[in-house]
């Protein structure tokens, strides 16, 4: 299958290893990966912070860039939620009937990475090997936005060598929330402290998620506290194999 990758602006800039892992994983599974260089940002930060007008051109740009793609993979649940939950209304408010139709046609072809693997490709075992004690953080957008349920966990359970431990209070927000972490830094820090305690109590070496945004926040706190726990995007665990090593 030809899969078009929307890497997202922050993964592109800050977490290239995640994008590389997605490419390695999908190609290993026998798919062709395409990366349109015209892509930038879905507009989530602007939209959620109140700059909805500024997000409209970004939506148009996204729709234009991915109009022809048959299957779109996004390794970030919050960006997928942005597109699914808000693009239809934004298009409608623009009063552009053509745009409304384009968004409508685009949405069914958009998949978050774990969703793509399990729902579209029907896979749970992707042939990964990862010999670490791992705990999974369910990001709010994956849980309540995309309603992924245990999809990411189903993939993790099939990873060879993994020691998967359950994270207590898995449905509680880590306190990132985009610009919330800066605008309400103190409250965000208090939420992070609780999440870090939960992560550390699992004695996992690695905390994973389908969103690098939460992980950047959680790892930032863990690193400052010298907790010795790493954070790794799910794509990197799934891309790792015994033969080729860790992604």
């Amino acid at each position: 299958m030809r899969i078009t990758l929307f890497i997202t602006c922050y993964n592109d800039t800050l977490f290239p290893e995640t994008g590389q892992a997605v490419v390695r994983l999908l190609e290993r599974l026998g798919h062709e990966v395409v990366f349109p260089l015209d892509q930038t940002c879905c507009g989530q930060m602007h939209y959620n912070t109140g700059y909805q007008r500024e997000a409209v051109p970004l939506m148009k740009r996204f729709v234009e860039t991915f109009r022809e793609a048959e299957t779109i993979c996004i390794p970030s649940s919050s960006c997928v939620a942005m597109i699914r939950d808000h693009y239809p209304l934004m298009a409608e408010e623009s009063g552009d009937a053509e745009l409304v139709r384009a968004v409508e046609e685009l949405l069914p072809r958009i998949y978050e990475l774990s969703e793509l693997l399990v729902k579209k490709l029907g896979l749970e075992d992707v042939g990964a090997y990862y010999a670490h004690r791992v705990t999974y953080h369910a990001s709010c957008h994956s849980l309540r936005g995309l309603q992924l349920g245990d999809i990411p966990l189903r993939l993790l359970r099939k990873v060879r060598g993994i020691d998967l431990v359950e994270l207590p209070n898995i449905d509680r927000c880590c306190g990132f929330g985009g610009t919330f972490a800066v605008k309400n830094g103190d409250v965000s820090a208090a939420m992070l402290a609780e999440k870090m305690k939960d992560v550390e109590n699992t004695t996992a070496e690695v905390c994973t998620a389908v969103d690098n945004s939460c992980l950047m926040h959680i790892f930032g706190g863990l690193h400052r506290a010298r907790a010795g726990v790493k954070t790794v995007h799910l794509a990197q665990i799934l891309a790792s194999t015994e033969a080729e090593g860790e992604a």
Binding site: I7, L14, P16, T18, A181, V182, D186, H217, G220
Partner: peptide, 18 residues
């Protein structure tokens, strides 16, 4: 407010697109 309680990795040399 971010770095008050969190460290941040430096921006890597090569973005994904490069």
């Amino acid at each position: 407010n971010w770095t008050a309680v969190r460290d941040m990795k430096a921006i890597p040399d090569q973005p994904f697109r490069a």
